[in-house]
Write a protein that binds this DNA or RNA. Structure first.
Lengths: 385, 385
DNA sequence: TCATTTTGTTCTCGGCGAGAACCTAATAGC
DNA sequence: GCTATTAGGTTCTCGCCGAGAACAAAATGA
């Protein structure tokens, strides 16, 4: 239950709502519009914004008038206000970006890495290079489950129980780390195709499938922060053993590894991803064997989506990574297989299956969202004001 | 986001918190304890309780002293305060009960029915018999998915798109209807073995498997209120076709239908449930064929639980219905099969698998909870005060 | 009997948002 | 170009809320 008891709490609560509205808005919000949105009076809005401006959290600038009536002001990120850094750590490369309140993103640096946890030291150094007194929080997306927000597991890199606290260390801006697929889903829910949905699913299809359940714009984490390994459910009857230690995982039939297996490639390597892209291109060009590989991938994807829809009843499902191409090339096949997996009475209203719109920036944008979540709350705000 | 803006909202918000605390408490809460629990002053607590007493929502009675200090008062349900009725509609029988604030339950009536939706008219009449001006809300648990909170589907009864509004009708105390397995899970999360868990799963195993994902004490509903059909995911590789229209459902290998199939019984009939109980008894007595049937059931159950734990990362999993017996007789087998389905790095901390403690009253208690949820909120309270 | 402990009660105080009244700055129509 | 209209900013009062302090009351225990 929300801890909100006194009238002083009310003020900071409404200020947090206001900041959140500014951050979430598609385009700059005016003060008058914000007042209407929050259902508060113009006088109250003026007082709230005034304090936020004094705290260097918002900056008011005159808005050009759009019609009759006295012109209002735009609520923008304060030029000296908090910013967050977001990092996306992929299996052989990384990117660091800076994000303003409101979501404006600037890529700062990127690089390759040696597939060892030393990459986190590299990111720490890069962060220090771009660190200033405006830096309020740091969000990191990693390509594997992060147990308890701290211990990272990536089986195909041989990272087992990598303790992130050892690499990121203390004496640092508040840092939050999470799984890339979950963060991509969060980005989609906050700023992409899943905006406004109550219940939705997102899957990032790369070597295998990671995903997240999204409820009212929030990615679900589970009891130990390791929810979302939908790819490791036996949804398609595969008899193979997966690298995760389980037999029959969905991921064995969907994703890059599945796509290239029949062409004799080892799973989990960057070369595999390249080959996967080639197979898609050859399928699109009409090559039969590649086409069958893509068909199988799409059908297995759809079959799993149907099963998950029975259990979780999503309004929409977004797909990123390889999923974008699969939707583009084989939408019909995916939807058909999904319908086959749906209980009869659900087939009249299947979940919408959509390509993710935030795209490759998903993990980075999601990392920025969780970094801002650490700021845009009453507790942080109370300190800052 | 919670709609709470003015200081007047604050009062009713805190009163709702107080009522919720009283309703959720294991044993009667004292006024002083409630103040500590909510983090409010004794003076404020006195004012809140005073208004709630005036509104006939709470009743204060002197508490006998437990040690030093001035004795305080107990906060009890008001003798003229709101009550709810809860009905549990099973496939051939029904029960109606009356529940006070705080959870005290009195069974009122029960009966058989003819397996047609006419049972709802019977329940309506029974409700009218027990209806008085204290009746504030009615909760109904039904043995099938309720799309949009209104349209009921029970394939093995041949109920398809049964419009509950036609049977329950208007001019009635606010009525909420939901799926029995979900409500049993909710009861478990609010008053049973899942109390206090953040992420948990509950499964009710009867003819097949229904369940719910529980997050912070709330059962998830999905986009169309039909989440929770975990039994209709292909988790165990069955090749059979299910009555739901899908091939390979988990429910084909777990539950009463699976248990009795090898003994030649048709699925979905009450006689089947009786036979299921007999098979369990024979297995417990050491009969080999029955024992193998129970073994297979338990193994398939565990295998599915492991898969779902990968995706949803529950802290604990409770089982009701047949699941209680399966846990009692085959805990080891279930846990072993679950571990086999868990990704390697999860096996050190598997989800706890527990028998439900609310028991057969689960759907009824869950129905009471959603009925009280319609009351214990600021909106209803504002009207009432 | 009296100190101690816990809670109830009363009163003051600062703070919050609503709402009304008024002011200001733009446009649209003539 | 003048003026009515419109929308938003500004200022002030008001009712309400919960905190906190001071005190009263009711129990225990030495």
């Amino acid at each position: 239950m929300q801890q909100l008891k006194t009238s002083a709490d009310l003020r900071v609560h409404n200020q947090a709502r206001l900041l959140r509205a500014v951050h979430d808005a598609d385009e700059p919000l005016t003060r008058a519009a914000a007042a209407r949105l929050l259902g508060i009076g113009r006088n109250t809005a003026a007082a709230l914004v005034g304090e936020l401006e004094a705290a260097r959290l918002l900056h008011e600038v005159g808005a050009e008038s759009t019609g009759r009536g006295r012109p209002t002001t735009l609520l923008l990120a304060h030029p000296e206000g908090p910013v967050v850094l977001a990092a996306d750590v992929r299996e052989d490369s990384w990117t660091l970006a800076r994000i303003e309140l409101g979501g404006q993103l600037t890529e700062l640096e990127s690089g390759e890495h040696d597939r060892t946890p030393a990459v986190f030291d590299e990111i720490r150094r890069a962060t220090l290079r771009h660190s200033d007194d405006r830096l309020a929080s740091l969000g990191i997306a990693v390509a594997g489950p992060v147990r308890g927000g701290r211990r990272l597991h990536i089986s195909h890199l041989g990272w087992d129980e990598v303790d992130l606290d050892e690499h990121i260390g203390a004496g640092w801006a508040p840092t939050v780390v999470d799984n890339d697929a979950r963060l991509a889903g969060l980005a989609e829910a906050r700023r992409g195709a899943l905006r406004g949905t109550g219940t939705a699913l997102h899957f990032h299809i790369d070597f295998d499938i990671g995903g997240t359940l999204l409820l009212a714009g929030d990615a679900q984490r589970g009891a130990h922060n390791i929810a979302g390994e939908f790819g490791h459910m036996p949804l398609t009857g595969s008899g193979l053993r997966c690298m995760c230690g389980v037999k029959g995982c969905w991921s064995l039939d969907v994703g890059t590894n599945a796509l290239v297996r029949r062409f004799g490639t080892e799973p989990g390597h960057a070369a595999g991803r390249e080959l996967g892209r080639q197979v898609l291109a050859r399928a699109e060009a009409g090559e039969a064997e590649a086409g069958r590989a893509v068909d199988d991938n799409a059908a297995a994807l759809g079959r799993g989506l149907g099963a998950l829809a029975n259990a979780l009843d999503p309004e929409a499902i977004t797909l990123s990574g390889l999923g974008v191409e699969l939707v583009r090339l084989r939408r019909g096949l995916i939807e058909e297989a999904c319908a086959d997996g749906l209980m009869e009475f659900r087939r009249a209203r299947p979940p919408r299956i959509l390509a993710a719109t935030v795209g490759d920036l998903g993990p980075l944008r999601g990392a920025a969202e969780i970094a801002f979540d650490a700021i845009l709350n009453p507790e942080w705000l109370r300190e800052r004001l």
